[in-house]
Design a protein around this nucleic acid. Structure first.
Lengths: 227, 227
DNA sequence: CCAAAAGTGTTGAAACTACACCCATGG
DNA sequence: CCATGGGTGTAGTTTCAACACTTTTGG
């Protein structure tokens, strides 16, 4: 027991709320707990913050250790500090909000117990993780309307139909196809490719790519992405 | 040295970025440090999180202990965790963002060393507090456009001129008087009072009051406050 | 030829921008 | 009567919401 302090200290952890998009909707990455407390329940991936890393570094490290995934987008969500949020001892947790591309979603789990679960049919979670997920979903719904983060959930080349379905899944309501297209194309942050998606049993949709450089240029001029 | 742990733990603190509005612009509340490190420099009010309080409770407690102020608005800003942000030891700090009304701004400081400083002429601050303030100003500028937090900086009864000057101070640009009035009155969250401000050497301006209940009702219906 | 999703244009209503003048008070 | 900020209306432009039909492919 080598570490002693003059005053007691809360333990400090990170938790990751990781969203992915699949054909059948928005998914959340969860771990099934193997030990008490909350043995058998699902929980967010996460763990303790080391002394030589920032909380963001801890979040990326834990995410990779527990699930094998690298987030294409990761930002701090909120710090949760309810005194009784962990029944064992005082633990303050910095939650992170992450998005991963679908190539990471499909395929067997590197970490045996990590699973993708439908974001709109979540089981009860361990600790205060229900609340953390609720806050993360709020953030996702708010943020997708004014920041181009939807593209972090799609493959590099995508159709406007895929993009619209993603927005509809996240916002939980239908969007007008014509107005959605007009709005998103007007912004000038999508490159129209000379390619279509093959092998569909209807008119093949054109593929687009998000132009990050164009977006950054516009953003610097005060332009506002907004759906 | 009674508190021992199996693994080392960062210390956990809170810092408060407190904004107030005065006649001559936006102010930030700072403390002059009496001890090393950064002795003599200005710093944000803050301190250690106790084991039996949330970080928000700690922020309110520290703010009152160090400055005598109660925030009319307080929300979590961001958690800062750079490994070297405190030269003495590893300290992770949860920063809070607070607004106080002008009655709290004027008058002698309860805490001798607390001072209001112009938000646009800040001296260099201790630790990473420059960065924390930068993030807080960004948040304030973004948030005032889509949340009715400006009223937390004004007295309960205010004129539209005061409100507009506040918005101009925070956003750093002039706003068209007619358009500003139309926009803010159209929302229907201000009560027009049967009172005017007396004692001014020009046409006496009408007083208004923010109607929180009306705002909440509208917000529940999906209405968006936006300037 | 049928099903399925892709793709496109218009119109009326609302909001946004820019702009100039009169009003009520104190000094 | 002057200075000061308060207070208002309008016209042109842009954006928004709502809506229906044609196109291209696979089966």
């Amino acid at each position: 027991m080598p570490y002693t302090y003059e005053y007691p200290r809360p333990a400090l952890t990170v938790d990751c709320v990781v969203f992915g998009a699949a054909d059948d909707g928005l998914k959340l990455l969860l771990i099934e707990r193997a030990v008490e407390p909350f043995k058998g329940r699902y929980a967010l991936p996460g763990g303790f913050v080391d002394m030589d890393e920032t909380t963001e570094e801890a979040a990326r490290r834990e995410l990779e250790e527990e699930t094998g995934l690298k987030a294409s987008f990761l930002e701090q969500l909120y710090t949760f500090s309810r005194v009784d949020r962990d029944p064992r001892e005082r633990v303050v947790s910095v939650a992170y909000f992450a998005l991963v591309r679908p190539s990471a979603v499909v395929g067997g789990d590197d970490a045996a117990s990590a699973q993708w679960v439908d974001a709109d049919e979540l089981p009860p979670l361990a600790f205060d993780h229900d609340e953390i997920v609720r806050v993360a979903l709020e953030r996702l719904r708010a943020k997708i309307r004014y920041q181009p983060i939807g593209f972090e959930l799609l493959p590099p080349k995508f159709t406007l139909g895929q993009l619209q379905r993603l927005y509809e899944d996240i916002l939980g309501r239908a969007l007008d196809k014509r107005n959605f297209r007009k709005a998103i194309l007007r912004m000038g942050v999508l490159d129209e490719l000379d390619e279509v998606e093959e092998g569909v049993s209807h008119r093949p949709p054109r593929l687009y790519r998000f132009n990050k450089a164009a977006y950054k240029r516009l953003a610097k001029q005060g332009f506002n992405f907004e759906i």
